[in-house]
């Protein structure tokens, strides 16, 4: 019995520092119409940021939410900005980056891999998709009708835009890359 009591006291003494330690930063996600922002900070600050984000003007924050958070709350908060499927599902202007094959496997676009641009456009047209040239795409981007959330490094992009989610899908087809076999979708 005495041994058990001694062990209990020792265990309590060992556990005390753990309870006394300051709370670890917590994480929260703010979903905006064009992206998701993951934050790491202490709870009080996170609550403050959440209240601030709720009053954020979407158009003013678009594309520069990280800068705004840093300007408002300083460097004590860690910020990671993600372009996610969830964010893309939200209403507003949005972009989903994908490849032709991955897009087809995810059910975003019909299979068009390996088709010429004209044939790909006819397949896309059959399902009500619009197929744009680079120039048309860039023109729309300049007009603010399409906003690319992240650099299209992969080259091929499916862009979803419109007032409602999945209102229209625009497939941005890059020119054939050097060295790639012909027959791929090209402008």
């Amino acid at each position: 019995m005495k041994k058990a009591v001694a062990l209990l006291i020792m265990a309590t003494a060992l556990c005390l520092p753990a309870f006394a330690a300051p709370s670890a930063p917590e994480m929260a996600t703010i979903e905006l119409d064009d992206r998701a922002v993951v934050l790491s900070a202490d709870r009080a600050l996170l609550e403050k940021i959440s209240r601030w984000a709720a009053e954020l003007e979407p158009d003013a924050a678009r594309g520069r939410v990280e800068d705004l958070i840093r300007a408002e709350f300083g460097d004590s908060v860690e910020v990671e900005v993600f372009e996610t499927g969830r964010a893309a599902d939200a209403a507003g202007v949005k972009t989903i980056r994908t490849t032709l094959r991955a897009g087809a496997m995810d059910g975003l676009i019909p299979p068009i891999e390996g088709l010429s641009a004209e044939r790909a456009k006819s397949v896309l047209g059959m399902f009500g998709f619009s197929a744009l040239t680079v120039e048309e795409f860039e023109s729309l981007t300049e007009q603010g009708r399409i906003r690319l959330l992240a650099g299209a490094r992969s080259g091929r992009v499916a862009v979803i835009h419109g007032p409602d989610a999945f209102d229209a899908v625009v497939i941005h087809l890059m020119p054939e890359e050097a060295g790639e076999p012909s027959g791929k979708v090209a402008e």
């Binding site: 094959r101 068009i112 047209g125 059959m126």
Partner: peptide
């Protein structure tokens, strides 16, 4: 194999589009 398969699916849909006289929109 996957590339050939993906292209075969695309060919199938291109065939359907041609059959239905779908033009470029």
């Amino acid at each position: 194999n996957m590339k050939e398969l993906a292209e075969a699916y695309a060919e199938m849909f291109a065939g359907i589009a041609a059959e239905r006289g779908e033009g470029v929109k």
